[in-house]
């Protein structure tokens, strides 16, 4: 059986889905044809496509976790991040391209969460590709109207006194939530802190883990 990528693991450590061995779909046929035409017509090269895939694979939630951990530990970086999260993240060395990023911060009184009701905008150049639920009809539809019910489905139950701020990414900005720093982490290194920061905590559908 053909396996042109049998050794490759996805960023989550799982094998890629075995698309090679299922029957060829119309849309897969289109993808192959479009890709080969772009190469034949000189628009791109096979190497450029491979590099782009590697670049996206390298973008994943651990990058955002490092940004959050530094914001918790480094007041000057925190200030720079809240002022211009895109520039602060680029200055930290992450390849996020032209991403225009805004950081919103959770506190004891405020909980932020991110959605894109019109499509599925996501800070992909920092956190990688969005989870499937983020692109779902249910999340896109309900989050702006009943954020607390959606949060409860994710296991996040907020006090009535906590204000929820929903951010609908309708245009050119992308958003990252800076989750509240858990208690009992005062003496932890940035590496240890980063391990507490989950993908969902940076979308606002989760909170940081407690040590």
């Amino acid at each position: 059986m053909p396996h042109d990528h049998h050794d490759h693991l996805s960023p989550s450590g799982h094998p890629y889905r075995a698309d090679d061995d299922t029957s060829l779909s119309y849309w897969q046929t289109m993808e192959i044809a479009v890709r080969e035409l772009l190469v034949e017509n000189g628009v791109t090269t096979a190497a450029e496509i491979a590099v782009q895939i590697e670049t996206m694979d390298a973008r994943n939630p651990s990058n955002g976790a490092k940004v959050v951990a530094r914001a918790w530990a480094d007041p000057a970086f925190h200030a720079a991040l809240m002022d211009n999260a895109g520039d602060a993240t680029r200055d930290m060395g992450f390849d996020i391209g032209p991403l225009k990023l805004i950081a919103v911060e959770n506190t004891a009184d405020v909980h932020n969460m991110i959605v894109c009701t019109l499509c599925s905008c996501y800070p992909r150049n920092l956190l990688g590709l969005p989870p499937d639920w983020y692109k779902s009809r249910a999340y896109r539809s309900r989050t702006v109207r009943e954020p607390r019910s959606v949060l409860a489905e994710f296991g996040v139950n907020l006090a009535d006194t906590t204000q929820v701020r929903v951010h609908d990414s309708t245009a050119d900005m992308r958003y990252i939530v800076i989750p509240a720093r858990p208690q009992g982490t005062e003496n932890m290194s940035q590496t240890e802190l980063a391990a507490l920061v989950t993908r969902d905590s940076m979308i606002g559908t989760g909170v940081a883990k407690t040590p």
Partner: peptide, 8 residues
Amino acid sequence: DDTLDAEI
């Protein structure tokens, strides 16, 4: 009192 922010 919860809020909704959007880019318009």
